[in-house]
Design a protein around this nucleic acid. Sequence first.
DNA 1: ATTTTGACCAGAAAGCGAATTAGGTCATTG
DNA 2: CAATGACCTAATTCGCTTTCTGGTCAAAAT
Lengths: 199, 199
Amino acid sequence: MRTSVQTKEIRDAILDATDQLLARYGYGKMTIDDLAKEVGIGKGSIYLHFASKEEIALSHVDRIIERLCTRLESISDEKIMPEKKLEKMLLMRVTFRFDSVQHYTQSINDLLSSLRSKLLEHRKLYHENEAALLAKVIKEGQTKKKFQPGDPLETARLFLLATNSLLPFNLTTSELGERSDIEKKTQKIAKILLKGIKK
Amino acid sequence: MRTSVQTKEIRDAILDATDQLLARYGYGKMTIDDLAKEVGIGKGSIYLHFASKEEIALSHVDRIIERLCTRLESISDEKIMPEKKLEKMLLMRVTFRFDSVQHYTQSINDLLSSLRSKLLEHRKLYHENEAALLAKVIKEGQTKKKFQPGDPLETARLFLLATNSLLPFNLTTSELGERSDIEKKTQKIAKILLKGIKK
DNA sequence: ATTTTGACCAGAAAGCGAATTAGGTCATTG
DNA sequence: CAATGACCTAATTCGCTTTCTGGTCAAAAT
């Protein structure tokens, strides 16, 4: 069954094309025909991989977060102090998401207004996934007696919440400001938060 | 010149009516005729106080923030420890803004999409005003050797940034979640931030 | 047999001209 | 001279037709 490998590849190619077209046209103006042409397959074939246009866009966003989570996990596995890990993870979360949508000048609003409720649901899931990854590191820090005791998952959620306003969710990257600025702010908030939970 | 007092009263009455109609119809559906009728004055008289419909809506938002800042200042003047002040101020900022727009079920999006760029500009100013108020208290804490040294204004900005995602700016109150939940989260973040700057 | 396709369908969206509405002005009013 | 509402025009809405597009599926390709 070679299909399963190919299937994954085509699925990924579709999402790559989605990224292109989303950046070029925005969600509303991106058509399935465009997409099929960009990928080089028939229109019907798109529907062998996705149930609807909505699902394509959502999967595209999902993929960004999956990739982010992979990065977060590898930071989590590095051989450095847990406090350094947390700092790096928070910064990675902000910069990775910034970079992932930087080329969408204004089409984030388009996406958000078209898929608002679905995106908000997904966002909750992302948040929980990311929180679980942070929590692991917080727990590690607690075990090593570096962090104060307390529910790691709850603390993780608070850390994410405290840096959420730096993410390009409802604001475009241009509205957020300079990347270097975002980066600095994130680092500073992370520093304060970390001091806030250290022993 | 009794007018100056009356002027202020009428201006306020117009903004009160704006609040009503914004909640009932949203920005787009609220007409100047509606507004004049609600206030009980002629349409032309509206324009003795405001230059445009945009300015009315923006002034309405401005007024919310002005009222918030008054509250923040009185907390700042209370005879309690600076750390308590900061906690109360951060909580006040979140809850006051939550309460101020709770009755707009969905019309925040309407406002935001109509006045996006102007609102973003104003938001920066609000942020700076609020930051100045927090900075005063942070400075007080530093003077009393309770907080670590460092630019108070910068720290203040970071504190606001870290709680910004709890504000009903792009998300409606219903999308933000339960008020009691928001409150708890704010308090917890505030606690961590404070520990983060304590000596 | 299984995968891929694109012509096809129905509903959504995009024009478009006409009619209505609503932001903003200003001569008149009290 | 502050307050007004009839008035002007630009924006919006409406009703309609045409076009487009998300999604399906019988047929073609493999």
